[in-house]
């Protein structure tokens, strides 16, 4: 099957002040597949992820050069509104960050600000569907008005995923979504990622190579701000082309 490319970066350079965080990244991310970004700490993988929905805009000293195309549209074009972009590209963070509101309000937040539901019933329905997609509905359906912060860590993270899904994004970015979770909660999130990849393009940053191997179709290895190698996950892990990749996955660097 021919893969369609959802996101494509061209000659992407990112600077934090004087420091160059990413240099000349050319990466294609296929649609409705899971792409994992691996590499040692500080290699720029999270920076790359945050470029994809322009979250780096809020960091004043951050400067981005080059182009990123989402569906053939350059998102660093001058007149592109990052607010609309972020509605299309959802994000889940390292630490679960539910808003200090009820579970319902957390999920309803996005639809409300984007005016996606015309009536209360529609909103209820949307929240329910999103929670179901995130595999959380059965656990919280009786306490949907309790604060989101009262949930366990893994449930909070799935709540954040439900919140992201609620605005029907095309892409979901995940920045080490399991690093604050225990193995059981991690397994649940990984199952969920697998399930979600049928409908969404997912880009996940992870420190765990096992996780990358388990959940992703494509793996990109970053080192010192450069993209070293990208390819099918099985290929990258079983027969890496680059020596650095081999060193990293066998634990010699990192």
């Amino acid at each position: 099957m021919k893969e369609t490319v959802k996101i494509k970066s061209k000659k992407l350079n990112v600077f934090y002040g004087e420091k160059k965080a990413l240099s000349n990244i050319n990466l294609e991310i296929p649609e409705r597949k899971v792409t994992s970004l691996i590499g040692p700490s500080g290699c720029g993988k999270s920076t790359f992820l945050r470029c994809l929905n322009r979250m780096n805009d809020s960091i004043e000293i951050c400067k981005v050069e080059g182009q990123i195309f989402v569906d053939e549209q350059n998102i660093y074009e001058k007149n592109l509104d990052p607010v609309l972009l972020r509605a299309r590209i959802g994000m889940v963070f390292q630490k679960p960050n539910p808003f200090p509101k009820s579970i319902f309000e957390n999920v309803a937040y996005g639809p409300k600000i984007h005016g996606l539901a015309n009536s209360g019933d529609e909103l209820n329905n949307l929240v329910e569907v999103s929670l179901k997609k995130a595999g959380l509905y059965d656990e919280v359906k009786d306490r949907i008005d309790e604060p989101g912060t009262s949930l366990s860590g893994g449930q909070q993270q799935r709540l954040c995923i439900a919140r992201a899904i609620a605005v029907s994004p095309e892409v979901i970015l995940m920045d080490e979504p399991c690093s604050a979770l225990d193995p059981i909660a991690t397994a649940k999130i990984e199952e969920l990622i697998d399930e979600l990849s049928k409908n969404y393009t997912i880009v996940i940053v992870t420190h765990s190579m096992q996780q990358a191997a388990r959940v992703s179709n494509q793996t990109a290895f970053f080192h010192m701000g450069s993209l070293i190698e990208v390819g099918k996950t099985e290929d990258v892990f079983s027969m890496p082309k680059e020596k650095k990749t081999q060193d990293y996955i066998t634990g010699k660097i990192g």
């Binding site: 809020s58 539910p98 200090p100 996005g110 600000i113």
Partner: peptide
């Protein structure tokens, strides 16, 4: 108010004033 809450709201496509009104001030 933790930055993670702000980021969470921006990542949903909320504008700055929406984030302040609906997330930061309640928190």
């Amino acid at each position: 108010v933790p930055t993670s809450l702000r980021d969470g709201s921006y990542a949903m496509g909320a504008t700055k004033s929406e984030t302040i009104k609906k997330v930061i001030l309640p928190a």
